[in-house]
Design a protein around this nucleic acid. Structure first.
Lengths: 342, 342
DNA sequence: GTGAAAGCGCTAACAG
DNA sequence: CTGTTAGCGCTTTCAC
């Protein structure tokens, strides 16, 4: 037996409209009838049909969340952040996994649009110009989080300054006496973060006048296995280049790298220091606990969602720019201090 | 500019009905007009409004997924499994996080119902009798995954045999020469899995006639920190009880335990062996790689979703029973072999 | 093979 | 303060 607004209306002896009103603008309804209606709802265990509502109001209280991959540890941080703040706002989220594929991100927008999400938070790879066509006729606001845009369509973006982040990681290592510092970076196609993080590395090398050699950096993916493989490659020439530390473009790959070092008889941090990036939950669980650059996921998510909600209320197609959130180095156990003999 | 079924109809010179037909039952439409309509759709970039459709057909192609906690590593495995098979079926999933709270699981059902999900996959704690009231008038099928029911309402459940799982873990340790084996279990309130896993431990102790002492088992939660704390407690009496191995009710807590051991000067597995439960992705990334009981999440998820879809097509309120999927011990590095002197 | 008309459950003017 | 009347965009009888 379906109980709709109509059923309630009958029971309460009012019109459907009145029922609708106590749902949406109770202050417009007389206190007494309001009570009558509420009682009726209670008794019938009435739940407004979210679909019908959405069809009428043209909004669903749902936002789309586009993520690079749901099996990444990265995903938890993103999702947890979003979920928390959307829940406080009484919104739902529909997740779309792009599985690290450009093809699927184009799909993401139209898919989510079709399912009437009110707005989209996008956390996958760099938004490029070929998205403009889709973005333009999307008709719902999109906010970027942890990534950036090179497209023409104006877009708001909330993230950490990745250049500065890795710069600071290197600076930290320098402050601990390291000079021969390598980097495990992500693909050059990953311009939103990977390239920037690599930029940060180069800037720091320049700034501190550190030794450099093309073999100091190896480029790979950012999963555990990628980090493992990249480290393996680096180790081939380690006897030659003698790195004392390595910065990475992500915690998960850093953990892979640590694992690889361990498997090859290197101790971390005694033989080689490693610093991660992100500060995922896992970073403080592994052995050794990972020293890393912390991204404030919760705060970034909250900012992004709020910005999106604002845009939903008051569309502003011109809104543009990237807002940096402060990152922070968190010192744990994967970096050793080199005492400089004098 | 909104493009609806109407717009398409006009452009193609047919009625909305026909457009609807090519969407749903194309075989009923003349080949030529079908093409005309499809072209029009293409040109206008038409996407059917999922809400309107849902309102009409009374189904949304969405299933609800109730999970215990989205920050758990456990969550990734559940979600990834579900996502994969629902996607193949062209369905969406709406996640509801119960945050390990009973209060929130009751809410979960009504919340998801209200949002017109076509069915629900439930993976949180044991379903008890007080759910019966809600479950009965829910009107949409519910399937259990990785958990069980003690409620009266008939419910299908897909999981691993947790009693046997831990039994096998202990058996494995015995086969490696261990006798003094402890257990880090989850709360006794967690009857769906925690209690059963503990049952498995007790059964094995009995079966192999192993030494036992109440201090051999400590009960806690299943997060990393819980495992850490539980292990810490166990270590207080370790000099007394001299355990050589410990089984756990979950990988995440096992990793916490390993970490605690390490922090207190115990080597794993040289001093104490640890076996996990679940085989989460993280299990093979930590040091030492965790020997554990593998739950086939993907397969279980696929089974559960398919069962749910069947129930959605053909309601069968009497469907009941728990279906066990095979678990498996995966040997890695956290257990050492004890050579028995003879 | 195709169209007209009604309806899914709710909201939103517009009257009164 | 409350009810009447139209829709929201799609599907679905029922005729033609």
């Amino acid at each position: 037996m379906k109980v709709t607004i109509r059923t309630v209306a009958q029971k309460a002896g009012v019109s459907p409209t009145t029922v609708s009103r106590v749902l949406n603008r109770p202050e417009l309804v007389d206190a007494n009838t309001r009570v009558r209606v509420r009682d009726a709802m209670e008794e019938l265990d009435f739940r407004p049909n979210a679909l019908a509502r959405g069809l009428s109001t043209n909004q669903t209280g749902t936002i789309g969340l586009v993520v690079p991959g749901i099996t990444d540890f990265y995903f938890n941080e993103i999702y947890a952040g979003i979920e928390q703040t959307t829940r406080d706002l009484g919104m739902k989220v529909l997740v779309y996994d792009t599985e690290h594929s450009r093809h699927r991100v184009l799909e993401a927008f139209t898919f989510l649009k079709q399912h009437q999400v009110d707005g989209i938070i996008y956390t996958s790879k760099l938004v490029t110009e070929d998205y403009d066509a889709v973005l333009e006729r999307l008709g719902i606001p999109v906010v970027l989080m942890l990534t950036q845009s090179m497209a023409k369509t104006p877009l708001l973006s909330f993230k950490v300054d990745d250049i500065q982040g890795v710069f600071d990681a290197v600076a930290y290592l320098v402050s601990r006496g390291h000079r021969k510092i390598g980097m495990l970076s992500t693909g050059m196609d990953d311009e939103a973060t990977g390239l920037q993080r690599f930029e940060g590395y180069k800037a720091a090398v320049r700034h501190y006048n550190l030794p450099f050699d093309h073999r100091y950096v190896v480029v790979g993916g950012y999963r555990f296995n990628d980090g493992y493989a990249a480290m393996k490659q680096m180790l081939q020439v380690q006897s030659d280049i003698q790195l004392t530390a390595v910065v990475t473009a992500g915690d998960e790959m850093a953990i892979g790298a640590v694992r690889c070092l361990h498997d090859n008889g290197f101790r971390v941090p005694e033989d080689i220091s490693v610093v991660g990036y992100d500060d995922l939950g896992i970073a403080s669980m592994v052995t050794p606990r990972l020293t890393t650059i912390r991204q404030p996921f919760k705060e970034i998510a909250a900012r992004a969602v709020n910005a999106l909600v604002d845009l939903m209320k008051q569309p502003n197609p011109g809104a543009n720019g990237v807002y940096f959130h402060p990152h922070q180095i968190v010192e744990r156990e994967s970096v050793r201090e080199i005492v400089i003999p004098r």
